[in-house]
Amino acid sequence: MVHIVTDSTSDIPVDTARELGITVVPAHVIFDEQSYDDGITITRDEFYRRLAHSPRLPTTSAPSPGEFGETYQKIGGEIVSIHVAAAFSSILSSAYAAAQMVPEAQVTLFDSSSLAMGLGWQVILAARAAQAGQPVEQIVSVLEHVRPRVRVYAALDTLEYVRRGGRIGWARAMLGQLLSIKQIIEVRDSEVISLERVRTRHASLDRLKELIYALGPLQALAVQHTRAPDDARNLATELAARIALPEPIVICEATTAIGTHVGPNGLGLIAVMAE
């Protein structure tokens, strides 16, 4: 059977990963010069608690080629390794370097062009194909059909973290912002796009829902949050009542790398449009 590997920024719930036999390589979170394995030596909960109080933003770093190499070696055989967009992280290049070093495994790399559950859904659907006994070419074909149907929308409660992170061009342009603003973004084709801005949290959640409704029939949906579990649950309940979905909505916290750049109280909706 083909084995599926991803990294911890995919946000796939632990149970789902176990069920589908997905191997998740942890990324690193560095708080005050101390490195932690995402989801293993630091829980998401702990991460967000520290994020709120840490004077300096934590940094995140990719698993090393060595770590990827160990994983690939341990698994061996045919592997499809699916990761966060190369434009956002060096994880894919790390995996690429590892793939060259491990002759025991035939690793096929796949750039999701997305992040968080935008990556996660691709991994889950690939793993199902793998479980069904599909060969590598077929799994890659599944991925290539899923990738363009993934939509990632998020509402940021504050622009403070995006600005501090300094990675996003349009966020830099809004330096010295005079008003408190809720930013709505889309992640698409390896790009973070500013969709629009509203003044209230209420309005930002309304816009998120409207964006999802406008997509038409969906194959899968996830609600992700950065320390806003209640809002995420309420949002999921509302969406479930309105949209017919072939499988339950996944609710999960967003990866630490995203949390670092988004800050607390962010909410995201990640959908796979029906074929």
Binding site: L179, I193, S194, L195, E196, V198, R199
Partner: peptide
């Protein structure tokens, strides 16, 4: 005007922007 300006998105076409901004 401020609410409309917030809703502006340079990735959208002119007409769509005008409608979204008016609604905002």
């Amino acid at each position: 005007g401020i609410a409309a300006m917030l809703a502006f998105n340079d990735q959208r076409d002119l007409e769509t922007n005008a409608h979204v901004m008016e609604a905002a």
